[in-house]
């Protein structure tokens, strides 16, 4: 099982909790940590479920609710805003027909805000899973989303 593999790749020490959670999130198609996984992790590390829940709920990259296969993160901070002359968020919302914090019905996309992703010199920027897309124009955004829709990254 993939979880066991992740757990075994770290020493049994509670400070690896965040690393373990990030690995699980990455490997799971719907990017979330389930109750059962939380129980298994807490048993494995000898820590309380309440602690694991506390950690998962603190960090925005982690979630206890299933999300889309692709998590589209829109930067909402000033440097992107200053260079966003076509409204990245609206464009993505229109393309996917969902609002921020929603997941498409086919479970393929979740749209989220993110804090600055450090690409301000190439603003505006978005991040889809681990890939950052920068110097966006309206056409570029439409193309990127349609590539994902067509399964070019699957």
């Amino acid at each position: 099982m993939f979880l066991q593999k992740i757990l075994e790749s770290y020493p049994i020490s509670e400070d690896y909790l965040l690393e373990i959670l990030l690995d699980i999130d990455k490997q799971k198609e719907n990017h979330y940590i389930s109750k059962e996984e939380i129980t298994l992790i807490s048993n494995h590390l000898g820590i309380k479920e309440s602690h694991v829940c506390s950690v998962v709920s603190f960090y925005t990259l982690l979630s206890t609710n299933p999300r889309g296969k692709y998590i589209i993160q829109i930067c909402k901070d000033v440097p992107c805003y200053l260079n966003d002359d076509f409204n990245v968020l609206k464009t993505v919302e229109n393309e996917l027909n969902i609002r921020v914090n929603d997941t498409t019905r086919n479970q393929k996309f979740t749209l989220e805000y993110t804090a600055c992703i450090g690409c301000c010199d190439e603003a505006p920027a978005i991040r889809i899973n681990n890939i950052t897309y920068t110097n966006l124009t309206k056409d570029k955004v439409v193309n990127i989303i349609s590539d994902y829709k067509e399964g070019k990254h699957d």
């Binding site: 309380k48 479920e49 309440s50 694991v52 829940c53 603190f58 925005t60």
Partner: peptide
């Protein structure tokens, strides 16, 4: 006992049991 913990962050933070 670790029953009560702080869950969530910022203004949404709550003190409650796991899940």
């Amino acid at each position: 006992m670790h029953v009560l913990e702080s869950m969530g962050r910022g203004h949404e933070m709550e003190i409650k049991p796991a899940f």
